[in-house]
Every structure is written in structure tokens, then in C-alpha cells.
């Protein structure tokens, strides 16, 4: 597999949210607006790339039986960095994302890529895989956030273009499931026609 393919697979073909259905907890929880989704996606991307690097570097040192706890420790360290940096420099986003930042530790996507990819491949491939998957995740969360913000508040990235409220259901939890369901249907249709 060429590195370009390795990078682009995360966008549509193996999109973590729309195809692999990984990391659905933040995908449903924080995507009330496009900006929240974007911020969450970038935070996860950073953790994903960093943990992929470290895991692929020390993979020969980790005993097989305790590899999952080891991965978790590595991931948790990077999540703590993200959490403290975000609290210091982006307090508004930190407040909006809240509990979902520490929850990146148990994001199936991050652990899944460490287990399935980084612990078996070389460092360069792992970085590219992390970037591709992370951007795919960011793309998915931003898209879902944009759809929910557009329908729920009549705005995109905070720029409102209607008066009053939108459809409240898209701000609430059901809207996340409805929006995700139809986006998955759309991606499946696109994949079928390719």
C-alpha cells in the first residue's frame, strides 16, 4: 500500500466514523456545532498521531500480555497534554467539550489504530495512518456538527443566517443519531457508485 493511499483511506473508504463506526461517543456527544466537532477532531488527531508514533517506536519493548494497558498509559499521557493545553489557551472550547476531552483516552479509534496498525507497522506509516485517520475523524465530526448546527440553529461555524431558533431536535441527542444515520447512508451511496 502506497503512503498516499495510506493517508487518504481515512477520508471516505475507511472513514473512522462513517465506515468503521469507531469513536461514536464524541461523534454523537460534542457535535452540537461545527466548531465543537472541528476542535474535538483536531484534539483527537493530535493524540492519535502522537500515540501512533510512540507505540510504533517501542512496539518491540512492550510484552504482548500487557500491551493494552501500555497503550492506554501512552494515550492517557497525550490526552493529559491536550487537556491542559486546551484549558490554558482555548478555555471556551474546553468548557464546551468538557468531559469528552478526558474520554479521548477510551476512544476506540485511538486504541484501535494503536492495536491494529501502529503496533505492527513502521513509524512513518503509523504517522501517516494517524494523520489520515485523524483528519477523516475531524472531517466526519465537522460535517456532522455543521449539519446539526445548520438545522438546529440555522448557522455554520457560529455565523447565523436565520432569525430565531431552528429545529431544536438537532441540538438535542436524537438529532445526533438522525444526522449520523443519514450521513452514513449518504457515504454508503457514494461508496457504491464509485
Amino acid at each position: 500500500m502506497s503512503q498516499i493511499k495510506n493517508f487518504t483511506k481515512g477520508f471516505v473508504k475507511e472513514n473512522p466514523v462513517f465506515v468503521l463506526l469507531l469513536g461514536l461517543c464524541p461523534a454523537l456527544g460534542v457535535t452540537t456545532s461545527a466548531f465543537n466537532g472541528f476542535g474535538m477532531g483536531l484534539a483527537t488527531t493530535f493524540v492519535l498521531v502522537s500515540s501512533n508514533i510512540v507505540v510504533s517506536l517501542i512496539k518491540s519493548q512492550i510484552p504482548d500480555k500487557v500491551r493494552i494497558p501500555s497503550f492506554i498509559v501512552i494515550i492517557a499521557s497525550f490526552v493529559t497534554i491536550v487537556q491542559l493545553v486546551m484549558e490554558a489557551f482555548l478555555p471556551d472550547l474546553f468548557k464546551a467539550l468538557g468531559l469528552f476531552i478526558p474520554l479521548i483516552v477510551v476512544n476506540c479509534l485511538v486504541l484501535g489504530r494503536a492495536e491494529a496498525f501502529a503496533s505492527k507497522k513502521d513509524t512513518l506509516s503509523s504517522v501517516i495512518d494517524g494523520l489520515g485517520m485523524g483528519f477523516g475523524f475531524t472531517f466526519a465530526l465537522t460535517l456532522l456538527g455543521a449539519v446539526r448546527e445548520l438545522l438546529g440553529q440555522g448557522a455554520i461555524f457560529g455565523y447565523s443566517f436565520i432569525q430565531g431558533d431552528g429545529m431544536l431536535v438537532f441540538v438535542l441527542a436524537p438529532g445526533a443519531f438522525i444526522g449520523l444515520g443519514y450521513l452514513i447512508a449518504l457515504i454508503n451511496t457514494i461508496k457504491k457508485t464509485e
Binding site: G166, M167, L168, V169, F170, L172, P174
Partner: peptide, 8 residues
């Protein structure tokens, strides 16, 4: 129900 939740 969609209307009920969207436009209370």
C-alpha cells in the same frame, strides 16, 4: 414527535 421536540 419530531415537530414537538423541534418547535416546542
Amino acid at each position: 414527535v419530531f415537530l414537538m421536540i423541534s418547535f416546542p
